[in-house]
Every structure is written in structure tokens, then in C-alpha cells.
Design a protein around this nucleic acid. Structure first.
Length: 587
DNA sequence: CTAGGGTTAG
């Protein structure tokens, strides 16, 4: 087992020196192993205490007072119970206060007490105190697990790694499944998915094997980094190794496939699940229902709801939120009837429903009602409302709401900025959009394709083709890959300037990146060539369009007809005339 | 009912 000396030295190694300064407590805090009362027969009977009635801070305070004044001193287990429920109601500061009091009163705390206290420090983002508490008595693997998780929670990734390595190297404790999970999950969530995968590989070379939860955490990490196929690959690898995936593993893989719209592949996984006798739970159903709702496949979503009912899988708040979001109108009442309390997401979904239907005044009333329900507007609430106002071109009201948001310390995120930038652009204020963009970039907010797409689109539409092209060329240095839409816009910009050669280069580049060229792109390109009277160069594009079943638009066609006057009508052009051109243009 | 565990919303 762990020796206290080893543990403390590990902590010193970790922190350099002196972390225990200022921490003092009575020595001999642990009970002697064979005290008079350690045998069950002599153990005074503890009065029953109902901890489940602790629902809020004042209950915990009252109970603590009561326990302190009890004639027979409550056992440490009773105190631990109280601490535990206090943590469950998220009163971490009070839990720590009780912990201090217990030390002051000389209550013999144990490893459980200490782990709870360390956990509270971590959740309150006070890692230093967490480490300091460890001087109190012998930490075990659970305590270290709590600390590792706390380090990740406080964004101290390197420190978590160092601590983990030291625990291994000095054999301070044997890492268990929970510790490996804490490491894998922490690494993945801090964007270190590949190191997490390496860690599992490294451990598997020395230790027996990684459990299903750690694998699941890694799969989630891979999925979130867009490596869905790697995740699926790993899923089969783990099955080969004899580690059986469970409902969580499958659900997260199903989520990954749904994100990519691969609903057919999802069926393979659900079949695998039923073959392995793994039942879908409410999570799995929620993911599936959400996917179908997003694709407007309401029949399938309804079928799933029916299956849920048959299998006694109960809808939760998220099921209802998904439905509100998907159906946009079913309201919140039915969830209230089922005894579920709508949360801020419920209202955000409903708000979104009103906004996308253009029922902006109802949306606004709902927005105002949220605080009356005891809920606080969050970033998403503001984003949805601002977006709704902007759709109606009520820009100044949207900006006012943004100011309100900042005043109330609700932090704007990428979505907020995307909406605002898009609004500026759509209102023709491209100069303001550009300087706003630079301001956001200065804040270090991560921006995406949507952000830049909105600005580039605005610039193009307002004739600022060179500025748009500059920004487009800077995308890769900002870690953003252009999508088909952005390529099309810039190709359009080049075409507009008559730079068809540059446009052609971009067209080739977008094809090599696997972006699908759509009707718009072909039309722009063809029109640009026709404008330069280069009919022979335009024809190959028209041919490709014919092959792909894409149609030329009216202005392309009229230019084409124009230039065909007096040209020899070869077979292709005749066919084109017959198949593609609308009758009124031919005549 | 003595501590630490992976999956779902814009």
C-alpha cells in the first residue's frame, strides 16, 4: 500500500517545494487501529440521520449544527455522509467550512473526508488548497484521481501529466481504471486526443488492459476532433481485444455518424447493439430523435418515440427540448405535465422555433418571460434572440440586446459574433464588419468558416472583391479551411473582375480539396468566359454540367444563345438546345 | 446513506 512518506515526497516533487507551508493540524488524526470501541460489539449505536432530506444549504447548516451538539459524537461516516450530500447540492464552500470545523474540533477525519474536501477545492478552482489538504492524512488512489481531474478542470494539463507520471515512476500508487479514465478524458477534452491514444497504447504494453469507459472517452475525443472513422476503427479494435462496448460507447459513435448525416451507417450500429443485447437508453434515443428532427424526418422521430414508450424508456428534459426544437410548436406544457421542469435550453429551443418562423414578437415576449420562470438568459438565449431580430432586419434592436448581454456579463461566443458580423454585412456595413472582425480576433476568440464566410460574402456582395480575396487568402494562416460556398464566392469575385485564369485555378484547387462544385459555381464560371467572348472555353464547363444533370441559369443561357448566333451549330450545341434550354429562349 | 468515472441541446 501507499506510504505517506512516498506520497508527500511525490507532492513535493510535483510542486517543487514548500507547498505544505501554513498547513498545520494535530498529529495523530487517525484513530488507533485497536481502540476500545473498534470492535462492533462495543460500538455505541448511532442514531439514524436522514441525509436525503438535505436539499439546500440551510438543511446542511442545520444538520451540521445538530450533529455537533449530539450527546454521542457522530462517527466519521456520519460526517462524511453529510459532506457528501453537501457536495451533491453543490455547496462546496460550506463543505470546506465543515471540513475545517471538523479539524478544529478534532474529529478524526479519514481518507474519504479528505477526498471530498480535495474535490471541493478542485471544483472551486483552488488546486493549491487541494494539495495542501493532502498533508492531512494518507492520500490513496481515489484522492489522486480527484486531484488529476481537478488539475484538468483547472486547465493544468501538463501538471496533470507530470503528477500521473510521478505516481507511476515512484510507484506511489497503482493507477486504477478511474485514474486512466481521468487522464484519457482530461487529455481529450483539453484537445490532446492523440496523446490520449498514445497513453492507452503505452499502458496496454505494461498493464493488463484499459476498461470500456476509458476507451469510450477516447472514442468521444476522436469523434469531436472529426476523426469519426478512426473512432469506428478503434471500436472494432477494442472488440477484438475482448473489451465489450456498452450503450455509452455505441451512443457516442451513433452521435458521430449522425453528425455526418450517415444515418444508414447508424442502422449498422443499432443492429450490432441489439445483437449484443445492449438496449438503447434515453441518451441513444435523444441522439437519434435529434438526428431525424434535423433532417425533418418526423415520421421516423415519431416511431422512435413510440419505441421508447414500448420499452419504458422515459423521456427526459433533453428529449422534450429536442422535440420542441424539432417540431417547433409542441410547446413546453406536455413536459410540465410529466413532472419535468423546463430548463433554459427548453426556452431557448422554443425561442428558436418562434424566431425561425418569423414570429419575432412572440419570441420577444418569451424572452421577457424567462427570468419570471426563475431561469437566467444564457449565451444561447441572447444569440437566438439577436439572430431572430436580425432576420427581420431589426439590426439596432439586436445590437441593443448585445449591449445588454455584455452589461449583464453573459459572455458572447463565436455564434454571437457570427450573427453580428453577418448582420453588419447584410446591412452593407462591410467596413464596420471588418474592424469588428479584427477586434474579435484580438480577443482570441476561436472563429470558424461561418464567421469568415459571412464577412467574405458581405465584401463580395458589396463589390469589395479585392478585400474579400485578401481575407480569403489569409484563411489558412488562421486555421480555417474554405468550404465550397467560400470558393464559389471568390471565384465569382475573380470572374467579376474578368480574372478568369485565377478563377480557374481556384476551381481546380477546390476540386482537389474534395469540395463539390455546384450549379452556381459552374454558371459563374461559364458566364465569365462568355462575357469575354470565349465560347470555346465555356463549352467544356457546359458539357460537365450536362453530364452532372446541372442546369444553366437564365442569364448564362441568354449569353450563350447570343454568342451562338452565326456559329456552326455542332452536335453538342444542338443537343444543348434541345435538352437544356427553356422553350421560350429557343424560340 | 462513506470518496473519484465516459455519452445528449444553438
Amino acid at each position: 500500500m501507499t506510504s505517506k512518506r512516498a506520497a508527500v515526497s511525490a507532492i513535493n516533487l510535483f510542486h517543487g517545494r514548500g507547498f505544505l507551508n501554513g498547513w498545520s493540524h494535530k498529529s495523530g488524526i487517525l484513530s488507533p487501529p485497536f481502540s476500545l470501541f473498534s470492535s462492533k460489539a462495543f460500538q455505541p449505536k448511532q442514531p439514524r440521520i436522514d441525509f436525503s432530506c438535505v436539499k439546500e444549504l440551510k438543511d446542511a447548516i442545520e444538520l451540521f449544527q445538530k450533529m455537533k451538539s449530539m450527546r454521542r459524537e457522530p462517527s466519521i461516516r456520519m460526517y462524511n455522509n453529510l459532506l457528501s450530500v453537501t457536495v451533491k447540492i453543490e455547496q462546496y464552500s460550506f463543505a470546506l467550512y465543515m471540513f475545517d470545523e471538523m479539524l478544529r474540533l478534532g474529529v478524526p477525519v479519514d481518507a474519504y473526508t479528505m477526498t471530498i474536501a480535495v474535490n471541493c477545492c478542485c471544483l472551486l478552482k483552488d488546486i493549491k488548497s487541494g494539495f495542501a489538504i493532502m498533508g492531512g492524512c494518507e492520500p490513496d488512489v481515489t484522492t489522486f484521481n480527484t486531484l488529476i481531474k481537478g488539475l484538468f478542470l483547472n486547465h493544468k494539463v501538463a501538471e496533470a501529466g507530470k503528477l500521473f507520471n510521478k505516481l507511476l515512476r515512484f510507484r506511489i500508487c497503482e493507477p486504477d481504471d478511474v485514474m486512466i479514465l481521468a487522464m484519457v478524458d482530461g487529455l481529450c477534452k483539453s484537445g490532446n486526443v492523440l496523446p490520449a491514444r498514445d497513453l492507452i497504447r503505452r499502458l496496454e504494453r505494461s498493464r493488463s488492459r484499459t476498461d470500456v469507459k476509458a476507451y469510450s472517452a477516447l472514442l468521444v475525443g476522436l469523434r469531436k476532433s472529426g476523426m469519426v472513422d478512426d473512432a469506428l476503427q478503434l471500436l472494432s479494435t477494442m472488440i477484438e481485444k475482448g473489451i465489450s462496448p456498452n450503450v455509452v460507447t455505441y451512443s457516442s459513435m451513433i452521435q458521430g455518424l449522425c453528425d455526418l448525416g450517415r444515418l444508414e451507417d447508424v442502422k449498422v450500429l443499432t443492429n450490432e447493439m441489439s445483437n449484443s443485447n445492449i438496449s438503447l437508453n434515453v441518451f441513444t434515443f435523444n441522439i437519434l430523435i435529434d438526428a431525424y428532427c434535423k433532417e425533418r424526418k418526423m415520421k421516423e422521430a415519431d416511431d422512435l418515440l413510440e419505441i421508447m414508450k414500448q420499452r419504458n424508456v422515459y423521456r427526459d428534459v433533453i428529449t422534450y427540448n429536442t422535440l420542441i426544437d424539432g417540431y417547433c410548436s409542441r410547446g413546453i406544457d406536455s413536459m410540465v405535465d410529466k413532472g419535468l421542469k423546463p430548463d433554459i435550453v427548453s426556452y431557448n429551443c422554443l425561442l428558436n422555433g418562434y424566431c425561425i418562423k418569423g414570429r419575432i414578437d412572440e419570441a420577444w415576449l418569451l424572452f421577457l418571460k424567462v427570468p419570471l420562470k426563475g431561469l437566467e438568459h444564457n449565451t444561447c438565449t441572447y444569440n437566438t434572440m439577436i439572430d431572430g431580430l436580425f432576420i427581420k432586419r431589426r439590426f439596432s434592436e439586436g445590437w441593443k440586446l448585445f449591449e445588454d448581454m455584455e452589461a449583464r456579463r453573459v459572455s458572447p461566443d463565436m455564434y454571437t459574433y457570427n450573427t453580428l458580423l453577418d448582420g453588419l454585412c447584410r446591412n452593407g456595413e462591410t467596413g464596420e464588419a471588418l474592424s469588428f472582425l479584427h477586434m474579435i480576433e484580438g480577443k482570441g476568440v476561436t472563429l470558424n468558416r461561418v464567421t469568415y464566410g459571412a464577412v467574405i460574402n458581405g465584401l463580395c456582395k458589396n463589390g469589395k472583391h479585392d478585400v474579400a480575396t485578401d481575407l480569403f487568402n489569409q484563411l489558412s494562416s488562421r486555421g480555417v479551411l474554405p468550404n465550397a460556398r467560400m470558393y464559389t464566392m471568390i471565384i465569382g469575385a475573380f470572374c467579376h473582375e474578368g480574372s478568369t485564369e485565377e478563377a480557374k485555378c481556384l476551381l481546380t484547387e477546390m476540386q482537389s480539396r474534395g469540395c463539390a462544385l455546384d450549379e452556381v459555381t459552374y454558371n459563374i464560371m461559364t458566364r465569365s468566359l462568355l462575357k469575354k467572348k470565349e465560347l470555346s472555353k465555356a463549352i467544356p464547363y457546359l458539357e460537365v454540367m450536362c453530364e452532372k444533370g446541372l442546369s444553366a441559369d437564365v442569364s448564362t443561357l441568354s449569353m450563350l444563345v447570343d454568342q451562338m448566333q452565326g456559329q456552326t451549330k455542332d452536335d453538342f450545341l444542338l443537343r444543348l438546345m434541345k435538352d437544356v434550354l427553356p422553350k421560350d429562349i429557343v424560340s
